[in-house]
């Protein structure tokens, strides 16, 4: 039995590389999510692929390959067969901050992938403990000028979204609070609610329930427009802070060398999924921002990756942040 399989496998191996783009997909597609099941990127991936599977007529199976700030999974995805049957969900960290954080990174975010398209971004919100002696961003910035040394900033671990965006925030406002690391957002938020630490920056999906519940206060949201989930929270620009617009974007990538027709099919399916009412509703409930039609194209994603790498590298290097 085994011998037959092996022998035939060797013969069949020659035939499979033929042009299969027209019939694509003929079998389930694996999407690597480089984080544990249940995290924001995983949730976005599951919501988006649910509808994509129906468009493509084949199921997209989520494979969680967690580790090293998402770079383990993306490394594996980058090295996969470029046949369209292995794709991945990258995000701000893996395709923006990673080159600065991981000097030995085994892939180049801008060169080793065939971008499929932007899926959904979750904006960053600047939040502080309930008892913080300032009530808006301006007051906060003033406080930081005089008491910067005393302030503790929480983050969810080196390499996490809240860490990178937090460092960026500090560099924009030129403050040096004491950084306190937590393992994940949950414990960090808990100590923020308990008034143990003073402030942090994190994705809206994590902090919105606590803001709505009055357990913590939000100073600003780092997007050009306000979020329908938090209509009372001003944007950073409205609150008087220029130069801090960040979102933890998630985007689908295929390995470099994937046939363009296949990338096109996937990109169209993704775009169709984002136009679907149910998908939209679920993403918006999370506080997600759905990219416009022009932002969804592979070309736009390629540009985004390049600009993000260019933006994060100097900021993180200057702060001496590394995860290796």
């Amino acid at each position: 039995m085994k011998n037959i399989v092996l022998a035939l496998a060797a013969v069949a191996g020659l035939a499979t590389t033929g042009a299969q783009a027209q019939n694509y997909p003929t079998r389930p597609i694996t999407m690597i999510v480089p984080f544990a099941a249940g995290g924001p990127t995983d949730v976005v991936a599951r919501i988006v692929t649910d509808h994509m599977s129906r468009t493509l007529g084949q199921q997209i199976v989520i494979e969680n390959v967690a580790g090293a700030g998402g770079t383990t999974g993306i490394t594996r995805g980058a090295q996969a067969q470029p046949d369209g049957y292995t794709i991945m969900m990258g995000h701000m960290g893996t395709h923006g901050a990673a080159p600065a954080l991981y000097p030995n990174l085994k892939y180049d975010p801008a060169k080793d992938f065939a971008p499929i398209g932007l899926a959904a971004g979750t904006p960053i919100v600047i939040v502080a403990k309930k008892d913080f002696p300032a009530n808006d961003l301006k007051g906060f910035l003033d406080y930081m000028k005089t008491n910067g040394e005393k302030v503790n900033m929480a983050h969810a671990g080196v390499g996490s979204v809240s860490h990178s965006t937090g460092i960026f925030f500090n560099s924009v406002i030129k403050a040096k609070p004491t950084m306190v690391a937590y393992r994940g957002t949950g414990p960090a938020l808990n100590d923020l609610m308990a008034n143990t630490v003073d402030f942090m920056t994190d994705q809206i999906v994590n902090v919105a329930p606590q803001i709505q519940g009055g357990n913590i206060k939000a100073f600003a949201i780092a997007t050009p427009q306000r979020s329908p989930v938090l209509p009372n929270v001003p944007t950073t620009k409205e609150a008087g802070l220029e130069g801090y617009e960040v979102s933890a974007w998630n985007a689908a990538f295929a390995p470099k060398g994937t046939p363009p027709e296949i990338v096109k099919k996937l990109s169209d399916a993704l775009s169709k999924s984002l136009d679907d009412e149910t998908t939209k509703k679920r993403l918006l409930e999370l506080g997600g921002v759905i990219p416009s039609a022009t932002e969804r194209t592979p070309e736009a994603l390629q540009k985004l990756v390049e600009s993000e790498v260019a933006r994060w590298t100097p900021v993180l290097k200057a702060a001496g942040a590394t995860a290796e």
């Binding site: 035939l8 496998a9 013969v11 069949a12 191996g13 035939a15 079998r27």
Partner: peptide, 8 residues
């Protein structure tokens, strides 16, 4: 199973 098996 290996993808090649599908060829059978």
């Amino acid at each position: 199973f290996p993808q090649e098996l599908a060829g059978l």
